[in-house]
Design a binder for these strands. Sequence first.
DNA 1: ATTCCTGCAAAAGATTTGCACGTTT
DNA 2: AAACGTGCAAATCTTTTGCAGGAAT
Lengths: 144, 144
Amino acid sequence: MGEAKKRRDYEKELRDAGIRITRARKTILKILEEGEKHPDAMEIFRRASEIDATVSLSTVYRTMKILEDRGAIQRHVFEGGPSRFEPAGGTHHDHLIDTDTGEVVEFRSDKIEALQEEIARSLGYEIVSHRLELYVRKIGRRRG
Amino acid sequence: MGEAKKRRDYEKELRDAGIRITRARKTILKILEEGEKHPDAMEIFRRASEIDATVSLSTVYRTMKILEDRGAIQRHVFEGGPSRFEPAGGTHHDHLIDTDTGEVVEFRSDKIEALQEEIARSLGYEIVSHRLELYVRKIGRRRG
DNA sequence: ATTCCTGCAAAAGATTTGCACGTTT
DNA sequence: AAACGTGCAAATCTTTTGCAGGAAT
């Protein structure tokens, strides 16, 4: 199947869906396309504000919701923090979160995926979705 | 898993720790000991209110915090819902959540545990904690 | 008596929404 | 012009906290 959808073009995606591309949205989308992989709403808002001080936090949230509803981004709620957003569309993966820095690393294990399926099936269920998060710290780092 | 589920005695646990056993706490602890395994704060509050209408939601939360700090219960935040509390102290396990009913089933997979360790280590991390949740539906149940 | 708890109301943090106005198509 | 989108403030929802009175030890 066609893959190679590395570079995202949210703007086209929304335009094609008949959604208007406004100044605020343009700013937010650019941040998503160019910025870090797992920003939270406040982070997006801060960056957007630097480019266009009139953008509001509400609009950030509303834009995230539109993208999420279209499957263009995924929302993750890691322990103890606000929602963080990541571009969707790649292969499925799970997350490893550095508890010291908040950094997120993506990983994938077909073995784990298979085992999950097995477990669910053996209990009479089918998996709708799942989440696996490893909260970790760099080996050797001293305890805070 | 197989071993007899030792009945919890939160009251003794707290008393031994020098924490006062008040009327409100007695009520709440009884609910935890006798009720379902994964109630949320509001559910505990409702049940407590039936026994003693003066118990407040604040006290429910405060009591949960005390128990959590002592490792007597664990708090879980499943997708889209409020925190749910479960008696701690058994072996580690993960959760399977029925998305139709909210019911929680505990399971454990040593294979998955081992794979997680392997993955974290191969990336240069050690696991601090982790969470694996399977959001599922009964096989054969028709879609809503 | 002293220390700890409690209920209440208010605060907090994250996110959503009503509304009147401004912008995109 | 007609729809749609925006900022702002206010509302939600869940959880926490300040405070002054009450209860446990």
